[in-house]
Amino acid sequence: MSKSIFSKIICCCLILSVVQFAQAQKGKFDFSEEKNVYNQIADVPVLTKDGTQKLSVLYSRSPLIVALIFTRCTGICSPLLLNLSEQISHLHTDPKENFKVLVISFDPRDQFEDMARMAKQYARENDPNWIFAVTPQISELTSSLAFNPVWDEDRQQLDHEALLSGINTDGYVTKNLIGLRDQQAIYSLIKSINNEFILSYPLPGNNNFLSCFSYDPSTGKKSWSWGMFLLVLPAIIAAGIVTILVNQKKTLHHN
């Protein structure tokens, strides 16, 4: 009897933990760029071609765009780096908006040699603005950036979002970009890590049906929305009231 109760409890715990795990997984890929903004990146040791140093040494010299990749990636890592490199080459940034790109692996299998090979592939091995690195403290680094790769046993790959994190010279995450982004987005990332004001505005959600404008991401078009009508409604109601008052005078006269 007591054995069966015990096994039931174990079963329940297992089910609960699976549910919790599933929920945690769901939460990991919410693609929100706001998570961890204004948190400090973990000050982990990083191995670069200049040897091992603390991450704070790098970001205190110039703000960083941190690209999290791994060299065995068969998915988004290459497109992410190629896109970043291309967008940056087209930017006409203000000279005071200085920054470096830190390409850092989150795969424990990667050695510095793998990263050096990667730098060569992208013809960035001698570019002082691109730093390729590995760290022995991957989990500290990734959790401080709210970046949660998941190991996929079947594909022998780490499943992850394409994340670029902007770090200012105090080590704070000022902005995240998820996915392959256009020049404007990359430019705003650079401005934000240089502590410049950047514009941001939340898109109306489903529980927000009275916005002034709506935006269709598929067409990129903005249009007036119902909320705008509320700005003319007071004048319409007042005109109605005045009309009633004016007519009321006539009725009184007729009486």
Partner: peptide
């Protein structure tokens, strides 16, 4: 209780109006 959220821009327009 969170099922309805206002649009900040609309409210700012209305407030200053």
């Amino acid at each position: 209780n969170g099922t309805f959220t206002n649009d900040a821009l609309l409210i700012k327009n209305l407030t200053y109006f």
